[in-house]
Amino acid sequence: MREVSYVKALNEALSEEMARDESVFLIGEDLVELGGGSGATKGLAERFGTHRVRQTPLSEAAFVGLAVGAAMTGLRPVVEIMYVDFVTVCMDQIVNQAAKLRYMSGGQLTIPLVIRSQGGGGTSEAAQHSQSLEAWFAHTPGLKVVMPATAADAKGLLKSAIRDDNPVIFLEHKLLYATKGPAPREEYLIPLGQADVKRPGQDITLVATSFMVHKSLAAAEAVADKISVEVIDPRTLIPLDIDCINTSVQKTGRLLVVQEACTHGGFGSEIVRRVTEQCFGALKTAPRVLGGANLPMPFSHPLETACIPQEEKIIDQIERMVTDA
């Protein structure tokens, strides 16, 4: 299979869906020449015209509101918020409007909307450009939440998100855009709500999201001679493929969730809650969450690195959990 970058995979997904369905349009900042914050929309204005690739003023409340209203009336908007940190200025449109309109209208309205954004740290962009905010959205009933970690997943999940009739928050990671991986050139879909076992194993279940999938895989490889680690990427938080995680924990008896988001109130705790409720008898040791520090992301490199779960910490945690029991 050919290798493709994560950002190119996103670009292909957008391009294929725009070619397939005229009601799909893109809206956001700097989408035309720059190709958006990541380059994911590069070339699409040339191919589909600027009436379908709408470059906006810096007015997130207005253009996210526009997208919600356009979705209410039959279009399929794909919004780009340049950094997920900027959702705070359009949170009303996402949380109070997009997420609730279908329910409040007794099912009369349909909101087929995708909001793409990039999260994560690792590039010294400090506290307002480095957050992982998936838990905010997962905590809002009515939103689906997708976090692809590979190029193949990025393409297949984005295409499914665009065809989904619900509001979908699609969270990319800034360190993943340049990464390459195998992904089919032809069209394919990955359903929302289907986890992927990225590495099979017997001794401990690692559930990791976004960029942490890669760090977890590296950690699993590093301990492979003594510990067999199963790495699961849920890929979508809402809906969550809890069955896949439960099946794994039934086998391994150990659960470690690795997330970049700060640990307090994070989605990792939710996974631990559900596994504890459903697989308590199978657990050989207390399930744990290895997450980001409960701090605003610092600028300086050593401080930033200290806030994000690193491979050595994951290895240490795996070893402690396996020897504990």
Binding site: G65, L66, G69, A70, M72, T73, D92, N96, Q97
Partner: peptide, 18 residues
């Protein structure tokens, strides 16, 4: 939400134009 409809209204208007 007071003012909640103001940005939403851009949507159906855009939709008609589109």
């Amino acid at each position: 939400i007071v003012g909640g409809g103001i940005p939403l209204a851009l949507g159906p208007a855009f939709s008609a134009q589109y």
